[in-house]
Design a binder for these strands. Structure first.
Length: 427
RNA sequence: GGCGUGGUGGCCGAGUGGUUUAAGGCAGCGGUCUUGAAAACCGCCGAACGGGUAACCGUUCCGUGAGUUCGAAUCUCACCCACGCCGCCA
């Protein structure tokens, strides 16, 4: 949520920052916000002045009644002004609601260090590992998955629809091994607390992290109960502390959660959706941190490194991409994508996204902390990173580690979890 | 799903129409005392929004929303949530 006080104080700076997102509608939205804010304050002042007068007169009525004096002429006057107060109050409240509805549509301000431009202005910050080389024609993961009996896309489509993969046999075990490997790494080495959250959340939670009201089309809705399937564990985990004032000694809070993620991916068909690359349901281990504002840049580096460690231990080559202002998501101020190299399809695939949301989600969800006893509550900063998403990790593992004989080598770190060091084709 | 009970500040808990500025307690903070600590005693101790250079002032908030009233934590209606019992069920 945009900081209305800041917008009022330095409207030009806020508008300039938002303009970097390259969304023409946003500036008009901010213009409406500014005039609504002015109207609201005027209406509020009128309403509150009248209420203050009414309250004083009501006290006088109470005093006279207690003293046994008559208050009839005061009551007549109050009855007349009661209607005015109701009207003014309703007007102020209506403006307040309109203002909030508009404010929820405004994206976060990009961090100053984020480059200008759209996706083509994203820049590579660093790269890790060597791309595999093959002395045979490497196959794409959907062929490997078929011959190794790891997943069954056709039957998933039968049971539910396209984009709902079924993992089978060793493939299902691979999913379970990846989950345990990542959870153990983050809880054991990185100090996260493991959370097993609900997979359905209410509207308030979706609004708190920024999926609603703008992106309802992207979500699956269980309409009978007005609950949404989680598109990422970020939603239930960040909202754990919605409407709370945290003790500063509790910060930073760090949570890790393994959940399925459900995304409608409305409008994303055709290219780059083959096999496991873009699906409606997938598993992901997610990292969430609630931190003090002054630490959030260092925390962003830290959470990104935690995600990178997963890929390094699995031996998957990756690069870190700094997203340009126009490519940064609605709620994020700054995002670093981790892209894994997939040797079969020979492309970089986003397997993680590490973002800082500054106080944007904390304002929406009202997550605050008190720096010291007696101090005013302040908003925390929220961050999250996939640590990491499963399908594209599986794509990279299969395609990069494939051998000439059609088998796939399992990374050493995963062997204790998977139980075997090699996947071999079905007889 | 049915019936019942309840939802008050960080926590416990009093309060059934008018100085509620929400009693009292616990926790917390400051002080007195003490070599230090504890105990005891004294004081402070919610949030949001608006106005004001500021001191400060105003408004709202007792699960949520809508009513009744000059005035609502308190009365009415609807909804949500928790707990108990019954029903159904992994």
């Amino acid at each position: 949520m945009i900081d209305l006080k800041r917008l009022r104080q330095e409207p030009e700076a806020v508008r300039a920052a938002l303009a970097r997102r390259g969304d023409a509608g946003v500036d008009a939205l901010v213009g409406r916000l500014l005039s609504l804010d002015r109207e609201r304050r005027e209406a509020l002042l009128r309403s509150e002045t009248l209420k203050a007068e009414r309250n004083a007169a009501s006290e006088e009525v109470a005093r006279r009644k207690k003293a046994g004096e008559a208050a009839d002429e005061l009551l007549v006057a109050l009855k007349a002004s009661a209607e005015d107060a109701r009207t003014l109050d309703a007007a102020a409240r209506e403006l307040d609601q309109r203002l909030e509805a508009e404010a929820l549509q405004v994206p976060n301000l990009p961090h100053a260090a984020v480059p200008d431009g759209g996706a083509d202005a994203n820049r590579v910050l660093r790269q890790w590992g060597d791309k595999p080389t093959f002395d045979f024609a490497p196959r794409p993961h959907w062929e490997l998955g078929e011959s190794l009996g790891l997943f069954d896309l056709a039957r998933g489509a039968k049971v539910t629809g396209s984009g709902f993969p079924v993992f089978t046999g060793a493939g299902a075990r691979l999913v379970r091994a990846l989950a345990n490997f990542m959870l153990d790494l983050h809880t054991g080495e990185h100090g996260y607390t493991e959370i097993a959250p609900p997979f359905l959340v209410n509207r308030q939670s979706m609004t708190g992290t920024g999926q609603l009201p703008k992106f309802e089309d992207e979500l699956y809705l269980a309409g009978a109960d007005d609950l949404f399937l989680v598109p990422t564990a970020e939603v239930p985990v960040t909202n754990l502390h919605r409407d709370e004032i945290l003790d500063s000694t509790a910060l930073p809070l760090s949570y890790v959660a393994w959940t399925p993620c459900f995304r409608r991916e409305a409008g994303a068909h055709g290219k780059d959706t083959r096999g496991l690359i873009r699906v409606h349901q997938f598993d992901k281990v997610e990292l969430v941190r609630l931190v003090r504002p002054e630490t959030s840049e260092a925390e962003h580096e830290l959470i990104c490194r935690h995600a990178e460690t997963v890929l390094e231990q699995l031996g998957i080559p990756y690069r870190v991409l700094e997203l340009a202002a126009g490519d940064t998501g609605f709620a994020a101020a700054r995002t670093w994508d981790l892209e894994v190299w997939a040797g079969g399809v020979a492309t970089w695939l986003e397997a993680s996204s590490a973002s800082t949301f500054t106080d944007f989600q904390a304002r929406r969800a009202s997550i605050r902390f008190r720096a010291a006893p007696g101090e005013k509550p302040e908003f925390v900063h929220t961050l999250n990173a996939s640590g990491v998403a499963f399908p594209r990790t599986i794509v990279a593992l299969l395609e990069n580690n494939q051998q000439a004989d059609g088998s796939v080598r399992v990374p050493d770190e995963l062997v204790p979890y998977f139980g075997r060091d090699r996947l071999t084709p079905r007889a």
